[in-house]
Design a binder for these strands. Structure first.
Length: 502
RNA sequence: GCCAAGGUGGCAGAGUCUGGUCAGACGCAGCGGCCUGCAGAGCCGCCCAACGCCGGUUCAAAUCCGGCCCUUGGCUCCA
């Protein structure tokens, strides 16, 4: 069984192939603001792809760029006292981005290249394109001539004539064709561009951003070259997978193909994967629209596991809706997985788990879950179906534990035992598939604070138990409610109360 | 206007490539039962219900073809 993915360039589902190492390039973000859940959706799907490829035996070389040169970054210079240059702003948001990535439990990329580190490579790429006749200099800027690249438009099905018809030649007199795009822009950020993106009043000073010397004079890299230069530098001329948001298909990725293939003469990417948008109230979550939920805020409010379970609720290539309802659903799905995992571990580690106990249904359910999970993942990374395989396993685990508990309560039989091997296999399946592949974290860390909190909760539960024995149920219920208010969920069972931190 | 992705039950979301085995699985919400002092969790059952519209091809269409309507994205910084 092999992995099938939906390839934007081929415009169909294709079998994924790679020789040895897989090179994966993820079109990262521009660090002009805090990352939001829309950005994180791409990160998550790239991360799960990375994890799944490793799971099925590939070595993955994952490179994800950080665009730290951009007029939106420049526009924020001076917004804070310590933001006196473009790179100060970029550094601040790069830091929050890395924090967010760690918080989301993403595997680290091999490198996170920045534009500011790769200006020499960008200049070389531009020079090559000029030498080969694909690009031309004009007033200190350099443009890619789209008419020289016969396949221009092949990714997004644009045709150059249509694009030309849309352009306004008067305004872009610097260009040969309206659809030509900049590889190198003369001088710094223009005053109008900076003002357009500014979120505050700069007073008399309008920031112009950093410039670098070049054969065409001082200037800044264009908006698309950076990805071509950085991906090629770190992963070679042909990438196995190029991944990005669907909103980048045109012009960004179209232009990357043109630049890269014109320069190297090689195919730029074997597979193009595009992640659908995250829609909030029917509209794209976007920094510019302002309808976003930042990753740090979402991590505080929901936690990494709920966020990841949420993303796993829809296919990467589909649009996904973020609403109170879909978040609530993700919370419930995660809780169910996590509770069942805890329950399975507790039964597995108890003295009642025996070598010779055997529940055929449970063992069969583990095999089915693994098979279904793999089939779903290989089928264009159908994460909801893969998650469903794990949820079906929770059903089997709960049935097994329920049945044994019921037998144990029955004085007549009194020989109930948990199926040790079956539970062990179930726990391993949760850990490998839910943990390693989906990146969910089943085991809570038990640092000092958590331990202390646990001891305090136990203490309160003892008090509550005494109240219950005395028949003071109202008091007992008050205690349970009070604990819930601070995030501790109490569950009464046959062997006393248990608790979990929400 | 041009290009692209979509429109499936109360919600959410597969299935479309490769027509029949599908209107599925998981879940959320809702309802009933078991269990429980109550609640929660868990288990069992129910939810008699949906393929945007109009044509066409076919023995057979959610799936293929044509037309139309609507939503979203891109064409300008964007994941």
């Amino acid at each position: 069984m092999s992995l099938v993915v939906t390839d934007t360039l081929a415009d169909e589902r294709v079998e994924f192939t790679a020789d040895g190492d897989v090179t994966l390039y993820v079109c990262g973000l521009t660090v002009s603001d805090d990352p939001h859940l829309g950005h994180a959706r791409l990160w998550f799907h790239a991360d799960v792809l990375h994890r799944w490829l490793e799971h099925i035996g590939y070595d993955v070389r994952h490179v994800e760029n950080v665009t730290d040169v951009n007029e939106k970054i420049t526009a924020r210079v001076g917004e804070r006292d310590d933001w006196s240059e473009e790179r100060d702003v970029a550094a601040a948001f790069t830091a929050t981005t890395f924090d967010a990535m760690r918080g989301l439990n993403l595997l680290r990329a091999e490198v996170y290249p920045r534009v500011t580190e790769h200006v020499p490579e960008i200049r070389e790429l531009v020079e090559t394109l000029i030498e080969k006749g694909y690009a031309y200099e004009s007033n200190g800027s350099v443009y890619f001539d789209v008419t020289t690249f016969a396949e221009y438009g092949k990714l997004s099905n644009q045709n150059v004539a249509d694009l030309e018809a849309q352009g306004e030649p008067d305004e872009r007199s610097e260009k040969r064709n309206p659809a030509d795009f900049a590889l190198w822009k003369a001088d710094g950020v223009s005053e109008t561009a900076a003002r357009e993106h500014a979120k505050h009043d700069h007073g008399a000073e309008t920031p112009t951003g950093e410039t670098w010397p070049s054969p065409w004079g001082d200037g800044r890299p264009g908006w698309h070259v950076e990805c071509s230069a950085m991906s090629t530098t770190h992963l070679g001329d042909t990438l196995d997978i190029h991944m990005g948001g669907r909103d980048l298909v045109f012009p960004h990725h179209e232009n990357e193909i043109a630049q890269s293939e014109a320069a190297t003469g090689e195919r730029f990417a074997r597979h193009w994967l595009h992640v659908g948008l995250l829609a909030m109230d029917g509209e794209k979550m976007s920094s510019s629209i302002g309808n976003f939920w930042t990753v740090p805020d979402a991590l505080d409010e929901l936690g990494v596991n709920v966020i990841r379970t949420f993303y796993a609720g829809a296919a990467y290539r589909s649009e996904q809706a973020l609403t109170e309802g879909t978040i609530a659903e993700a919370e419930e799905r995660w809780e169910r997985l996590s509770r069942t995992y805890d329950r399975a571990v507790a039964a597995l580690d108890s003295v009642d788990a025996r070598a010779k106990a055997e529940d055929g249904d449970l063992r069969e359910a583990v095999t089915d879950a693994r098979d279904d999970f793999a089939a779903a993942m290989n089928d264009d990374l159908n994460l909801r179906e893969a998650t469903a395989a794990l949820l079906e396993l929770t059903d089997a685990v709960n049935r097994h534990v329920d049945a044994v508990d019921a037998d144990a309560d029955d004085e007549a039989t009194n020989e109930a035992a948990y199926d040790y091997r079956g539970l062990r296999e179930a726990v391993e399946a949760f850990a490998e598939l839910g943990g390693d592949v989906l990146g969910l974290q089943f085991e809570a860390e038990s640092d000092g604070e958590v331990e202390l909190a646990g001891e305090l909760v136990e203490l309160i539960l003892d008090v509550r138990e005494a109240e219950r024995e005395a028949g003071n149920y109202e008091r007992a219920d008050d205690l349970r409610d009070a604990l819930r208010d601070v995030g501790v969920e109490i569950e009464d069972g046959p062997d006393g109360a248990t608790y979990r931190f929400e």
